[in-house]
Simulated assay, not measured.
Amino acid sequence: MSAASSPCTGVCRIDPATGWCQGCRRTLDEIAAWRAMSEADRRTVMDWLAARKGSD
């Protein structure tokens, strides 16, 4: 299984209504912690992002 790359899209604006980045849908805490996260934690966040994108 390959490593989860950063979901950053370069569109870095936090939506005040959701608290999610408008580009990647991560929270500020998730963005800040990304580099220190384990691979399992990154994959969990990636699963959450897919669900968040579906809720738009």
Results as ranks from 00 to 15, higher is better:
I31H: 04
T27D: 03
R26W: 04
S6N: 11
I31K: 11
A36V: 08
V45R: 00
A50N: 09
R26A: 01
R35T: 11
V11I: 15
R43L: 12
I31W: 05
K53E: 14
S2N: 10
W34A: 03
S2H: 06
S5T: 15
I14M: 11
E39Y: 04
Q22S: 14
R35G: 14
A33R: 11
C12A: 06
A51T: 13
W20Y: 15
E30A: 01
C21A: 05
W20E: 02
A3W: 05
R52Y: 04
S2P: 14
D15Y: 03
D41Y: 03
T27W: 02
M1Y: 09
Q22R: 14
S55R: 13
C12G: 04
G23S: 06
R42Y: 06
R43W: 09
L28G: 09
T27G: 03
M46K: 06
R42G: 03
R43H: 12
K53I: 07
A36G: 08
G10K: 07
D47V: 13
W34K: 01
R52T: 01
V11A: 14
L49K: 01
L28K: 12
P16R: 11
C12S: 05
D41K: 07
T18K: 03
A17S: 13
W48C: 06
W34V: 02
W48V: 12
T9L: 13
M46C: 10
L49A: 00
D47S: 15
D47L: 12
I14W: 02
T44I: 05
T27Q: 03
L28F: 05
A4Y: 05
R35E: 10
K53M: 12
L28C: 07
R42I: 02
C21Q: 01
P7K: 05
A17T: 11
A51L: 15
C8G: 05
W20S: 02
T18S: 14
V45G: 00
M1P: 12
A50V: 12
M37T: 01
W34T: 00
K53V: 06
S38G: 09
M37P: 03
K53Q: 10
A4N: 06
Q22N: 10
T9Y: 05
E30P: 02
R26C: 00
A50F: 07
T9E: 07
